[in-house]
C-alpha cells in the first residue's frame, strides 16, 4: 500500500468524525425543539406533575443544554450512551447490543440480494436490449420500486406463510427453539453455527428468508436501472468490439468485461442505498416483528426519548460513514486507473 493511499484512507476515516458529530448535534437540538416531553409522552396523564418533575430531575433533563450536550458527547466517545429515558430505563448499550446484530442480520442478506440480483438482472437486460427480457426486467424494476414495503411484506406473509405454509410468519426463530437458545454475540446465525445448534440455524434461516427478500426487492429497482444504463454504454465500448473480434463469447463480454467496468457507479450506489436500507428496515422489522434497531428508533421518537434517539442516530451515522469510507477505498481496487 502506497503512502499516499494510506494517507487517503486515514483522511477519509477522520472525515467521518465531523460528519457524525454534526449529525448527532442536529439530532440533539431537533429532538429538544420538537414539542412534547419524554416523561409525559410515555406516562400520560396518570402520573402527577410533581412526580413527573421529580423524574425529570432525576434523569438530568433540567440541566442546561450545553451540559447535557457535552455529557452526551463524552458518553458517546466512551460508548456509554446512558439509559433510555423512559419505559424501563434500560441501558441503551444493552438494547443496542441486542438490536444492532438483529438489524445487521436482516440487512446484510437483503443488501447482498439487492446488489447481486439487481446488478445481474441489469446486465442481462442490457445484453438483451430491446428484446422481451429487457422490457420485462425494466417493468419489474419499476414495480418493485413503487410497491410499499409493508404491502410487499404482508403479501409474502399471506401467500407464502399463511396459505402455502412454506415459511414462518414472523420473528427471528421458532418459539420453542428460542426458549433453549443461548445467544452470545446476538448474531444468531453466528451463535448457532458456533454452538453447532443446527435446528436453531435452520429455523433462523427460514425466518430470515421473507424479511430479507422483501427488503432486498424493494431496494433493487435503482440497481437494475443503473446497471442496465451503464452496461449499455459499456457494451458499446471499443474494447467490447475488440473482444468480440477475438472471438470472446457474448456472455463473457457482458459479465466479465462490461460489468467489471460498471462497478464504480454501482459501488457508489451501494454506498448511497445503504442509508435507505436502514430506513426500509424499519417497515420490514415492523411487518415481520423483527426485533431490530429500526423499530426501536421509531418507538423512541414517538416517546421523545432523547437519549435513545441520539444514540441510535449516532450508531446509524457511524455505520453509514464506515460504509462510505469502505466504498471510497474499494474504488482503488476496482478501477486501476484511480490513483491517490
Amino acid at each position: 500500500m502506497s503512502a499516499s493511499f494510506r494517507n487517503f484512507v486515514v483522511a477519509r476515516v477522520l472525515l467521518t468524525v465531523p460528519m457524525v458529530l454534526i449529525l448527532v448535534t442536529m439530532v440533539f437540538f431537533v429532538m429538544r425543539v420538537l414539542p412534547g416531553d419524554p416523561i409525559r409522552s410515555q406516562l400520560g396523564p396518570k402520573v402527577s406533575e410533581a412526580q413527573a418533575e421529580a423524574i425529570r430531575e432525576r434523569l438530568g433533563l433540567n440541566r442546561p443544554l450545553t451540559v447535557q450536550y457535552f455529557d452526551f458527547l463524552w458518553r458517546m466517545v466512551t460508548l456509554d450512551f446512558g439509559n433510555a429515558l423512559t419505559q424501563g430505563e434500560r441501558p441503551i448499550r444493552d438494547e443496542l447490543s441486542e438490536l444492532l446484530p438483529a438489524t445487521i442480520e436482516l440487512t446484510l442478506p437483503a443488501m447482498t440480494l439487492t446488489a447481486v440480483v439487481g446488478v445481474l438482472s441489469g446486465a442481462y437486460a442490457a445484453q438483451r436490449r430491446k428484446r422481451p427480457a429487457d422490457y420485462a426486467i425494466r417493468v419489474f424494476s419499476i414495480v418493485v420500486y413503487a410497491i410499499p414495503v409493508f404491502f410487499l411484506g404482508l403479501m409474502f406473509q399471506i401467500i407464502f406463510s399463511v396459505r402455502l405454509g412454506l415459511f414462518p410468519l414472523a420473528g427471528r426463530m421458532d418459539a420453542l427453539l428460542l426458549r433453549d437458545f443461548r445467544p452470545v454475540t446476538n448474531f444468531y446465525v453466528v451463535d448457532a453455527i458456533v454452538q453447532g445448534n443446527w435446528p436453531a440455524l435452520k429455523s433462523l434461516l427460514l425466518h430470515l428468508v421473507m424479511p430479507s427478500v422483501t427488503l432486498g426487492l424493494i431496494l433493487m429497482g435503482p440497481f437494475i436501472r443503473l446497471t442496465r444504463v451503464n452496461m449499455i454504454e459499456a457494451l458499446q465500448a471499443d474494447y467490447i468490439t475488440a473482444g468480440r473480434a477475438r472471438g470472446l463469447p457474448e456472455r463473457r463480454l457482458t459479465y466479465r468485461h462490461a460489468l467489471r467496468n460498471t462497478f464504480i457507479p454501482i459501488l457508489t450506489l451501494i454506498g448511497l442505498q445503504f442509508a435507505l436500507l436502514l430506513a426500509g428496515a424499519v417497515l420490514t422489522e415492523t411487518t415481520f416483528s423483527w426485533p431490530g434497531m429500526g423499530r426501536y428508533l421509531v418507538k423512541r421518537i414517538e416517546l421523545r426519548d432523547y437519549n435513545a434517539v441520539q444514540s441510535v442516530i449516532a450508531v446509524f451515522a457511524l455505520a453509514v460513514g464506515a460504509i462510505s469510507v469502505m466504498v471510497d477505498v474499494l474504488y482503488a481496487f476496482v478501477d486501476p486507473r484511480v490513483r491517490y
Partner: peptide, 15 residues
C-alpha cells in the same frame, strides 16, 4: 410471543 403489528399477529393465529 411479541409482535410489532396486529396484522402479522392475526396472520399468526390464523396460520
Amino acid at each position: 410471543r411479541y409482535f410489532a403489528d396486529p396484522t402479522t399477529m392475526s396472520n399468526a393465529v390464523e396460520k
